[in-house]
C-alpha cells in the first residue's frame, strides 16, 4: 500500500507502484473534454512510437475515448457535480504485449447493477455476435441524455478487446456505487 503523501518518501513508493504495475498513464479527478483529448493524444503517440503498426495504438485510444466519454455523458445526464463527476482512468501494459484500460466512476447503484449485466452479456459474445449487435445498435434511434448511456460505445469497447470485458461494482453510501470496467487490448 502507498502511505500518506505527506512525506517525500511516499511519492517514491507511488512511483514504485506505478512501475511494478506497468502503468503508462493514470488519472483521478474531474475530467474535462480537453483533458480527455490531451491524455489520449499523448497515449496514442507513446504507443505508436513503440510499434511498427498503428493498430495497438488505435485500439487502446479508441477504448480509452469511448470509456472516458461514456463517463462524461453519464455524469452530465445524472447532473453530477464534483466529487461524483470525476473519473478514474488507468492505462497499463500487461507485460506480454497487451494493454489494459481501466475506467471507473461513481454511479447510481441501480444503474451500476444494470451496467454489470450489460457488460457480462457483452463479455459472453464472440466477435461476429458483437459485430451484429453493433450494426443493429448503429441503426437504433439515438436517445439523447439516456441515463445509462453506454450503448454503442460499450459494444465498440468489447469489439476492440482481445479478452472478455471485466467489471465490478463497489457499493458506496447513499444509494451509489463505484463502477469499474477493465478492457484488455
Amino acid at each position: 500500500m502507498v502511505p500518506s503523501l505527506t512525506t517525500h518518501r511516499s511519492l517514491a513508493s507511488l512511483r514504485d507502484f506505478f512501475s511494478t504495475e506497468r502503468i503508462l498513464i493514470c488519472f483521478n479527478g474531474p475530467i474535462s473534454r480537453t483533458l480527455i483529448s490531451e491524455i489520449g493524444a499523448a497515449l496514442k503517440e507513446h504507443i505508436e512510437s513503440t510499434r511498427d503498426c498503428m493498430t495497438a495504438a488505435m485500439d487502446v485510444f479508441s477504448v480509452y475515448i469511448e470509456m472516458s466519454q461514456n463517463i462524461r455523458h453519464y455524469s452530465a445526464a445524472r447532473g453530477y457535480v464534483e466529487p461524483e463527476a470525476t473519473a478514474t482512468v488507468v492505462i497499463a501494459e500487461s507485460g506480454d504485449g497487451h494493454y489494459f484500460v481501466f475506467a471507473g466512476n461513481v454511479v447510481e447503484l441501480e444503474d451500476g447493477k444494470a451496467l454489470l449485466e450489460r457488460v457480462e452479456h457483452l463479455a459472453s459474445l464472440d466477435k461476429p455476435q458483437l459485430k451484429a449487435l453493433y450494426k443493429e445498435q448503429l441503426r437504433q434511434p439515438r436517445v439523447e441524455g439516456a441515463a445509462t448511456g453506454a450503448g454503442l460505445g460499450l459494444i465498440e469497447v468489447a469489439r476492440k478487446s482481445s479478452a472478455p470485458l471485466q467489471c465490478s461494482l463497489d457499493v458506496l453510501a447513499a444509494g451509489r456505487a463505484f463502477f469499474t470496467l477493465r478492457a484488455t487490448i
Binding site: 488505435m58 485510444f61 479508441s62 475515448i65 469511448e66 466519454q69 448503429l138 441503426r139 439515438r142 454503442l152 460505445g153 465498440e156
Partner: peptide, 13 residues
C-alpha cells in the same frame, strides 16, 4: 479518416 469515435460513426451514417 484515421479514427472515428462511435458518435462520429453514427453521424457518418
Amino acid at each position: 479518416l484515421n479514427y472515428l469515435n462511435t458518435s462520429s460513426i453514427r453521424a457518418m451514417i
